[in-house]
Amino acid sequence: MKPRTPFTLPGALLMLLLPAAAFAHQEAGQAAGFLAGLEHPVSGLDHMLAMVAVGLWGAVLGQPAIWMLPVAFPLMMAMGGLMGLLGFPLPGVEIGIAASAIVLGAMVMTERRLPLRAAVVITALFAIFHGHAHGAELPEGASALMYSLGFVMSTGLLHAVGIALGTLHGWSAGRRAVRAAGGGVALAGLFFMWKALA
């Protein structure tokens, strides 16, 4: 018999992370926290579109990229954030972020099926730029761990939005819509690039 495995309970346990301003241990007294981190990735259209494009591209590529990209992205993004916090300079961060929207959007639009390793490397490379920008912008006084959690979860949920939209790819009309969405992300990326270079 197939075991019943309701995922609601682990989901509920994860949601217990929501007590936003849980100031405990070493971060005691530091303000902001989870909600600030949750809000940060959606506060910039350049970040948001690139994150959704990662999910869209994963959905277009299918298994196993559909889960490998969303697993790799947060880890490499955190690596970028770590670099930002440690003070490692990363030249052309804004250009890198704009390029991520252009490249990822173009990949979705053209339904480019790169080898899995190449797809992961491209995504991871861009994740470093996104993470560096966020890490360097970590507000003073923020509850660091809760901020980081919110930030990472928000990014992951944006990937999930992309993956959900990418499931439309299975239908012919949906496929056109997904490709159009990729084109839109790439166009927006060009605008961000123009702004970064101006």
């Binding site: 889960w67 947060p74 993004m77 930002g84 660091a144 980081s148 930030f151 990472v152 992951g156």
Partner: peptide, 23 residues
């Protein structure tokens, strides 16, 4: 896969926390 994604979120939060501790 969702379990692995949750793991990556936890690891990513830890990495950022290291940066914050150094900062």
């Amino acid at each position: 896969i969702a379990v692995r994604v949750a793991g990556s979120w936890i690891a990513a939060s830890g990495l950022l926390m290291f940066g914050w501790l150094y900062h």
